[in-house]
Amino acid sequence: MGKRIMPRAALCAAIVAVVPALSACGGVKDPQPDVVAGKQLFVQKCGACHTLNRANTKGTQGPDLDDAFQQSLKEGFGETAVRGVVYKQILYPNRLKNAQGIKMPAKLVSGQDAHDVAAYVASVAAKSGRDSGRLASAVRAAGGGTAVEKNGTISIPADPNGQLAYTYAKATGSTGPVTIAMPNRSGTGHDIVIDGLGKGSVVSKGVSSFKATLRPGKYTYYCSVPGHRAAGMQGTLTVR
C-alpha cells in the first residue's frame, strides 16, 4: 500500500463500518492477544513497509500508521475499533497500489498472529514515547557493533527480524581485493551497494555480494531498495 492507499476518509468509513460489528459481539472475539508477539511479528512482516513510532519501524512503501490513525483516535474512535480495522486490512487489504506499483499481500499473518499484530498496532498507534516492560525488549535493536574483514570477506548481514537496517552500522577492512557480502535471512528483499565499488543483487533468504578492490578511506554502504536507505539502512566502511 502507498502512503495514501487508505485515505483518511476511507479509514474513517472503515472504522465506522467495523464498530457496529464489534459492539454486537462485545469486541473482537479471540483469546487474549499477545502484544509482545504482535510487536515481533509486526517488525518482521510489516515494518519494511510501514512507519510505526513505538515499533521503531520506518518503512515508506505503505501508510504511516501513526499518521493514519491519529485523527480518528482524536475524534473518539477507540482502540478496539482501530484493532478491528487493522485486523481486517491484514486479511483483506485495500487493492490499490502504491507509487511503486506494489500492493499489500493478503494474510501476511493469519489466525492468532493476525490478532496479535492488530492488537499491538492498535495499542501504540499515534502514541509518542517508547514501549516499556516486556515490549521494550521484544525486538533487539539493529545496527550495533562493527563488521571485521575475515579471510578476504566483509560480511554485513541484513537484520534477520525484518528491520530496515544492517546488523552492523560500521565495518572495517584492509586495502586490496575483498568480497562484500550481505547475508539476508529475512523475507524482505535487500541488497548492499557501495557507490563506485559495486552492487549486489536484491535477495531475500540469500546472500547479496560483490567483489571490489579497496583503497584507504571511508565508504558508505547502503540498501538501494526504494525507501530502505532513507529509513536508515546504511553504514560506514573504514579502510586503512
Results as ranks from 00 to 15, higher is better:
Met1Thr: 07
Met1Ala: 13
Lys3Asn: 15
Ala9Leu: 14
Ile15Met: 11
Val19Thr: 13
Pro20Ser: 06
Ala21Leu: 14
Ser23Val: 02
Gly26Val: 03
Lys29His: 07
Gln32Lys: 12
Val36Tyr: 05
Val36Pro: 04
Ala37Val: 03
Gly38Gln: 11
Gln40Leu: 02
Val43Ile: 10
Cys49Asn: 06
Cys49Ser: 06
Leu52Cys: 05
Asn53Glu: 12
Ala55Asp: 05
Asn56Glu: 08
Thr57Glu: 00
Gly62Met: 10
Pro63Phe: 05
Asp64Arg: 01
Asp64Ser: 11
Phe69Leu: 12
Phe69Gln: 05
Gln70Ser: 13
Gln70Met: 09
Gln71Asp: 11
Ser72Tyr: 02
Ser72Lys: 06
Gly76Phe: 09
Phe77Gly: 01
Thr80Cys: 01
Ala81Tyr: 03
Lys88Val: 11
Lys88Asp: 15
Gln89Ser: 07
Ile90Asp: 08
Leu91Ser: 07
Leu91Ile: 14
Tyr92Ile: 13
Tyr92Trp: 10
Asn94Glu: 13
Arg95Ala: 15
Ile102Met: 14
Lys103Leu: 12
Met104Phe: 05
Pro105Ile: 13
Leu108Ser: 10
Val117Met: 12
Tyr120Lys: 07
Val121Ile: 15
Val121Asn: 13
Ala122Pro: 07
Ala125Lys: 10
Lys127Cys: 03
Arg130Gly: 06
Asp131Leu: 12
Gly133Cys: 05
Leu135Asp: 08
Leu135Met: 07
Ser137Met: 08
Ala138Lys: 09
Val139Pro: 04
Val139Lys: 12
Arg140Val: 12
Gly145Lys: 09
Gly145Trp: 07
Val148Gln: 14
Val148Ile: 15
Val148Cys: 08
Lys150His: 13
Asn151Cys: 05
Asn151Ala: 14
Gly152Pro: 07
Gly152Ala: 04
Thr153Cys: 03
Ile154Trp: 08
Ile156Val: 14
Ala158Gln: 06
Ala158His: 10
Asp159Asn: 10
Pro160Trp: 09
Gly162Leu: 03
Leu164Gly: 04
Thr167Asp: 03
Ala169Thr: 12
Lys170Gly: 03
Thr172Val: 15
Thr175Asn: 00
Gly176Cys: 02
Val178His: 00
Thr179Ala: 06
Ile180Leu: 00
Ala181Leu: 01
Arg185Asn: 12
Thr188Arg: 03
Gly189His: 01
His190Leu: 03
Asp191Tyr: 07
Val193Thr: 14
Asp195Glu: 14
Gly196His: 10
Lys199Pro: 04
Ser204Ala: 15
Gly206Thr: 05
Arg215Gly: 08
Pro216Ile: 03
Lys218Phe: 05
Tyr219Ile: 12
Thr220His: 07
Thr220Ala: 05
Cys223Ile: 11
Ser224Pro: 03
Ser224Val: 08
Val225Met: 09
Val225Asn: 09
Val225Phe: 07
Gly227Arg: 06
His228Val: 01
Gln234Gly: 06
Gly235Arg: 07
Thr238Ser: 15
Val239Glu: 05
Val239Gln: 05
Arg240Met: 01
Arg240Lys: 14
